[in-house]
C-alpha cells in the first residue's frame, strides 16, 4: 500500500461544485432580500438575479444528474455503515486527537456522514427548492385556479423553509472543510482535484498503465 496524489475530483466535479457554490450563494443572498430580510439590493434586481441564478442552477443540476449516472459516481452517495462512528469523531474524537474512523479510497471518496448529508441535499433540500421554485416561477400559468391563493402560500412557505435548511447545510459544510489536515486542505483539494489516497499495488499499477485516473 502506498499513498499517492490522485485526482479524486475530476474537472467536471470541481466545476459543478464551485459553480453550484456561487449560484447557491447568489440565490440565498437574493432570496433573503426578496423575503425582505436585508436591504442590500433593490427588490426588482434581487428577483431578476434570483430568477437567472435559479435557471442556471437547474441547468447545472440536469447536467450533473446526467453526469452522475453515466459515470456511476452516484454510487458515492449511497448509504454507508458506520455513521455513528463518524458523528462521534466530529463530536469528540476530533477534539482529543483521535484518528478519523474512515479511510478515503478511490471508490469511497465520502465518509458515511458526508454521503448522508449530500444525499439529503440532493434528494430532499434540492428538490424541495426547485420544485417549489419552478411552481413559484410559473405562478401566472396556474394563477387562475381556485386553489391558487392557498397554494401560493404553501409553495412560498415551503420554499422559504427549504432555503433556511440549505443555508444551515452550507454553514456546517463550510466549517467541515476546515477539519482536514490543515484548515485549508479540503478547499485546496476541491480546487486542484488531487488528494493523497492509499492505493494497493494493483490499483497503482492499473492507474499508471491505463491513465484512467490522473496520478502524480
Amino acid at each position: 500500500m502506498t499513498k499517492r496524489d490522485v485526482m479524486i475530483y475530476t474537472r467536471y466535479e470541481r466545476f459543478w461544485h464551485w459553480s453550484q457554490a456561487v449560484l447557491i450563494f447568489t440565490l440565498f443572498f437574493t432570496g433573503l432580500r426578496i423575503h425582505d430580510l436585508h436591504p442590500w439590493l433593490k427588490f426588482g434586481q434581487a428577483v431578476t438575479l434570483h430568477t437567472y441564478a435559479a435557471y442556471a442552477l437547474m441547468g447545472l443540476w440536469v447536467f450533473t444528474t446526467f453526469w452522475n449516472f453515466t459515470t456511476g459516481q452516484w454510487r458515492q452517495y449511497l448509504f454507508k455503515k458506520g455513521i455513528f462512528k463518524v458523528i462521534r469523531f466530529y463530536a469528540w474524537g476530533i477534539l482529543v486527537g483521535e484518528p478519523h474512523p474512515y479511510k478515503k479510497t478511490l471508490q469511497r471518496k465520502q465518509n458515511a456522514l458526508q454521503s448522508l448529508a449530500y444525499m439529503t441535499f440532493m434528494v430532499v433540500i434540492g428538490p424541495a427548492l426547485w420544485l417549489t421554485g419552478i411552481a413559484y416561477l410559473f405562478y401566472n400559468e396556474w394563477a387562475g385556479a381556485d386553489w391558487s391563493g392557498d397554494a401560493l402560500w404553501v409553495i412560498a412557505v415551503s420554499h422559504t423553509m427549504a432555503a433556511f435548511a440549505m443555508g444551515t447545510f452550507v454553514i456546517i459544510h463550510i466549517y467541515m472543510t476546515t477539519t482536514g489536515k490543515t484548515p485549508l486542505h479540503y478547499v485546496k483539494t476541491m480546487i486542484t482535484g488531487y488528494d493523497k489516497v492509499e492505493l494497493s499495488e494493483v490499483e497503482e499499477a492499473y492507474l499508471a498503465e491505463t491513465k484512467s485516473v490522473e496520478m502524480r
Binding site: I34, H35, D36, L37, F43, V47, G149, L152, W153, A156, V157, T160, M161, A163, F164, A165, G167, T168, I171, I172, Y175
Partner: peptide, 29 residues
C-alpha cells in the same frame, strides 16, 4: 391582506425558526 405577496408576507414563527437554525449552526461551528 388576504393573499401572499413576496417581500411582504411570511409566517413569522417559521422565519424565526429558520433564522434560529442559521444562527444555531453558526454558533455551533
Amino acid at each position: 391582506p388576504g393573499f401572499y405577496m413576496p417581500g411582504r408576507d411570511s409566517i413569522r414563527w417559521l422565519d424565526f425558526v429558520g433564522l434560529l437554525a442559521l444562527g444555531g449552526a453558526l454558533a455551533g461551528v
